[in-house]
């Protein structure tokens, strides 16, 4: 990302987005822009509104007020037919993978091609195999999703999300629930997809290590508000107390100094046992 942000084409524009669940305000006047070719990480703790923001960005929920523009189109005023056309340029990898359990991995990956193109079976199979190769799952196309591990499911979901070569990819908690090795391999996969397919990628995560590894810019959310939007260095250097709380609680102690973290946990548990 050497060009100034102002010169890059905006792919996502969120303007004053507010949403409520009943009387509870979940997102409070969110505004952000994601530019072409960047990896934007939306980060925050549980209940910060990051998953709700993602659901709004992909058109699964409608805001109480505000606008969302994807690829220059205001999705609030789009018909279902127009949304269908837009979705062909967008890929989404869900946290759970969301592969269809009644289909094989290969059939799952070919589904968007089958529904939106007139390609013959052989070509679709080749394309599915190529995408599986990209996510290091070559040879797994005949397995059922129930036969895959958690990390493999997520990689297969990535393969399905990019089968139509989207210009924009959304990833919901790609590293959640995975061990550090698998998590790291998924981060590398995201970076590889960005470079190889020149995608704009939005990642929602609460994993700080993963966010810092893949992000060009980070949006930090807390209780429905944006605390900051900036590069990894900007976020690390922020003097905002809530950001520092988030970083200290989840990052410095757990990741940078795992021994100290374990020692504190062990010390605390020993203290608890001694009270019994």
């Amino acid at each position: 990302m050497t060009m100034p942000l102002s010169e890059l084409e905006p792919i996502i524009e969120v303007i004053d987005l507010t949403t409520h669940y009943g009387s509870r305000k979940i997102l409070n006047g969110i505004s952000l822009t994601v530019h072409k070719g960047e990896v934007m990480v939306i980060m925050g703790g549980s209940g910060s509104g990051k998953s709700t923001l993602l659901r709004h960005l992909i058109g699964l929920e409608h805001p109480s007020s505000g606008n969302i523009k994807l690829l220059g189109q205001d999705i609030r005023n789009m018909t279902e037919h127009d949304m269908t056309q837009l979705y062909r340029k967008v890929g989404v990898a869900f946290q759970s993978g969301a592969l269809f359990s009644s289909m094989t991995v290969g059939e799952n990956i070919m589904l968007p091609l089958r529904e939106h193109t007139k390609l013959d079976q052989k070509t679709m199979e080749i394309m599915a195999r190529l995408k599986l190769e990209v996510v290091n799952l070559a040879g797994f196309e005949d397995l059922m999703p129930s036969e895959l591990s958690g990390g493999m499911l997520k990689r297969a979901a990535f393969a399905r999300a990019v089968i139509m070569d989207p210009v924009l990819l959304f990833c919901d908690e790609p590293s959640a629930g995975l061990d550090p090795v698998v998590s790291s391999s998924l981060d590398e996969l995201i970076l590889r997809l960005k470079d190889a397919l020149d995608m704009t990628i939005v990642v929602v995560t609460h994993e700080l290590e993963s966010a810092f590894r893949i992000a060009d810019r980070i949006t930090v959310l807390d209780k429905g508000d944006i605390l900051t939007i900036g590069t990894v260095d900007d976020v690390r250097a922020s003097d905002n107390r809530r950001i520092q709380d988030l970083l200290n609680r989840h990052f410095e102690e757990e990741i940078l100094d795992p021994d100290a973290y374990l020692a504190r946990l062990t010390g605390e548990s020993e203290a608890l046992f001694s009270q019994v």
Binding site: L60, T84, A98, L99, S102, L111, P112, E115
Partner: peptide
């Protein structure tokens, strides 16, 4: 049972964002 399991596993959402109408499919 099939539909509710798909709802819980985000499979219906996945259909929508693939531009596939769940009623039709």
């Amino acid at each position: 049972a099939r539909l509710s399991t798909m709802m819980i596993n985000n499979e219906i959402d996945a259909l929508r964002v693939m531009g596939i109408n769940p009623v039709r499919f």
